[in-house]
Design a protein around this nucleic acid. Structure first.
Length: 249
RNA sequence: GGCACGGUUGCUAAGUGGAAAAGCGAUGGUCUGCAAAACCGUUAUUGCGUCAGUUCGAUUCUGACCCGUGCCU
């Protein structure tokens, strides 16, 4: 019988972080971030990384595990390996592993047990995936507001510091969205107005791509939530049920 | 009031006497080692300000008119 894990995925700005903390505290879980940019140290504001305060004591894994100044490539395969290790540790501790993040490929690699290098796929866990996909009418204003807040929090300084620390321009550029635009802004290629405009549009386009991706998730394991005010109650009952069923199989 | 230029798809914008480029946006999709990345499809039902004329045929030529912008008295 495979161990159970809960996956919280979803579109940008859908509220994954806040929900994951509520659920983790309620179900005695530890969180593994499934985000391709939050694995890097120092990419905080631009990647919307959770702060220590926000963690409220819930242990988090797979954050800040790579030094971007090394300009090393961290790939899905690396993530799968690290996530497997953390999940197993958490299970050994008798707690519930909760994979949380918006990098669809990363979470899917764990859920489906992708076999890299031509190996066959071998799912290791029994999965319940809760996917947050609110409509754009809810997301759009949040994205706009969030962009302004992050700039005020010093997003440009953060990028400036990364560059000063020896992170390649190319490396940041390749990360897309925030970091790519930050670089372009700092280089004087675009003005602040264009910056906000592009960031907004590109983020909304990204959300569209994420939707396309999540639409294809295994329907047997995935539940889609579209209304933030009911995230907590629905997710809680889904998890309760999921963990309970476990005892009988 | 006069002169000049312009009026093309949601926006920007080419263009031709014989059934309207492109970019952006929008939208659908792809995805097994850089994935907030990298790609692909669709997107102006003879329609190109209005009306009339020339023509086998006009968005493309002519005239009038309407609208916008710049300049001038």
């Amino acid at each position: 019988m495979k161990p159970k894990i809960v996956v919280i995925s979803g579109v940008t700005a859908s509220g994954k972080t806040a929900l994951s903390i509520l659920l983790a505290k309620r179900f005695n879980a530890e969180i593994i971030s499934a985000d391709s940019r939050q694995v890097y140290q120092g990419l905080d504001i631009g990647s919307a990384k959770i702060t220590v305060d926000e963690m409220q004591g819930v242990p988090h894994h797979c954050l800040d595990i790579v030094d971007p100044a090394q300009n090393t490539r961290y790939s899905v395969g690396d993530f799968q390996r690290d996530a497997y290790a953390k999940i197993d540790e958490i299970i050994a501790r008798g707690k519930l592993p909760m994979l949380v993040g918006g990098t669809g490929l990363y979470s899917r690699a764990v859920i489906n047990g992708y076999g890299f290098d031509g190996q066959p796929n071998a799912p290791r866990y029994d999965v319940l995936q809760i996917c947050l996909v609110p409509p754009n009418t809810i997301l759009a204003p949040k994205v706009k507001q969030r962009n302004v807040e992050r700039v005020e929090q010093g997003m440009f300084d953060e990028t400036r510091n990364l560059l000063a620390r020896g992170v390649n321009t190319d490396f940041l550029y390749k990360l897309g969205l925030e970091y790519r635009l930050n670089v372009r802004y700092l280089q004087g290629e675009i003005n602040l107005e264009t910056y906000y405009d592009e960031l907004y549009h590109q983020t909304m386009q990204f959300i569209k791509r994420q939707r396309t991706w999540y639409r294809k998730e295994n329907p047997a394991l995935t539940h889609y939530l579209t209304e933030p005010t009911t995230y907590d109650s629905i997710a809680s009952s889904l998890i309760k049920n999921f963990l309970h069923i476990d005892n009988h199989t």
